[in-house]
Every structure is written in structure tokens, then in C-alpha cells.
């Protein structure tokens, strides 16, 4: 009786081993999921939600929406953003703050998105351009507003449907 069990055990073992090997054989023939990154740049799809680099969108007239209010700077948990502004006199005699420099440090940003959420005029967004590696630490300090850019005219902006829809979203 024990002998029959012994012999039977050998065949059971062989069968189960063969079963395991069939599984791995199938795995050998499955298409591979590995992406070969630098070669597949053209077909690479990065999710829209991916936060990589903080940018300030400028339109074709080199105008941005930043009013230099500094809310993003206040909300940043680790002081990554530095907003410097200066005040000028407008034509109608009022004093107005304009943006000098919007500095953002790529190196110390935690990509928490608080600055984008709290920005009252939707001047900054995160894009998904993830190739941010540089050879020098000083290059990580980005200046977001372009040279010679200025604030977009409010009245023109209000007429566009796009921004109002965005604002509604934010309130909701």
C-alpha cells in the first residue's frame, strides 16, 4: 500500500511540475509589456493628470493672467515659489501691481498642486513634460513669466466662455 502511494506520488509530482512549466511556457510567449523609453518618445502617452513642471501659459501676444497677488507663494508648503512685483501708476491715475518675476524651484517642489488650486486667476498650471533632468542645480530654478510679458486685459478675458466655465467648475 505504501509502495503504491510512493509510486503514485512520483507521478503526481511529475504532473504538477509539468503543469507549472506549461504556465511559464505560456508566459514566455506573451507579448512583453516593457516600454523602451527614449525610442518610444513619439508614441509615449503621459496622463493629463501627471504633474511635472509648473508653467505660466502665455498667449500669442505674450500676455499671462498672473496679477502678482502672491496667493500661490503664501500657499506653497515649502516655499518653492517666489513672486516679486512692483507697483506702477496706470493712465487713469490708479496704482497697480504688476509681476516682475515668478520664480519656481523645480528642486524643492513636491507637486502638491496647492498653488494651482488656489490661484484666483488660473495663471499657472502643471504640464506633463516629465523630462526635467538637468546637469546643474541652478537650472532647476525656473522663471515662469516670459521676458517682456504683461498682464492680460481683464475685459477681454471675461468675454471668453472658456474662463468663465473654468471658474464655475472651481466654485463647484
Amino acid at each position: 500500500m505504501k509502495f503504491i502511494q510512493y509510486i503514485g506520488g512520483i507521478f503526481t509530482a511529475l504532473r504538477s511540475l509539468a503543469g507549472g512549466m506549461i504556465v511559464t511556457w505560456k508566459e514566455l510567449l506573451t507579448p512583453k509589456v516593457t516600454m523602451e523609453y527614449p525610442e518610444n518618445r513619439k508614441t509615449l502617452v503621459i496622463s493629463d493628470r501627471w504633474r511635472s513642471e509648473l508653467i505660466m501659459p502665455h498667449d500669442e501676444n505674450n500676455e499671462h493672467a498672473c496679477t502678482a497677488c502672491g496667493i500661490c507663494m503664501i500657499n506653497c508648503p515649502n516655499g518653492t515659489i517666489q513672486v516679486t512685483s512692483s507697483s506702477i501708476d496706470t493712465e487713469d491715475g490708479k496704482k497697480k501691481k504688476i509681476l516682475d518675476k515668478h520664480l519656481w524651484d523645480y528642486g524643492s517642489c513636491t507637486f502638491c498642486n496647492l498653488c494651482v488650486i488656489t490661484c484666483p486667476s488660473d495663471a499657472i498650471i502643471f504640464n506633463n513634460d516629465f523630462e526635467g533632468a538637468v546637469f546643474d542645480k541652478s537650472k532647476l530654478l525656473h522663471r515662469l513669466n516670459h521676458e517682456g510679458s504683461k498682464l492680460r486685459d481683464r475685459k477681454k478675458e471675461a468675454s471668453t466662455l472658456d474662463t468663465s466655465a473654468k471658474k464655475e467648475n472651481k466654485e463647484a
Binding site: 511559464t24 508566459e27 514566455l28 507579448p31 512583453k32 509589456v33 516593457t34
Partner: peptide
């Protein structure tokens, strides 16, 4: 690598 659905050294 192929048994693990990877590509291995490339």
C-alpha cells in the same frame, strides 16, 4: 526576462 514578460538587457 522573457519568462517574466520583460525584455531583459536591451
Amino acid at each position: 526576462a522573457f519568462f517574466q514578460a520583460r525584455l531583459g538587457p536591451n
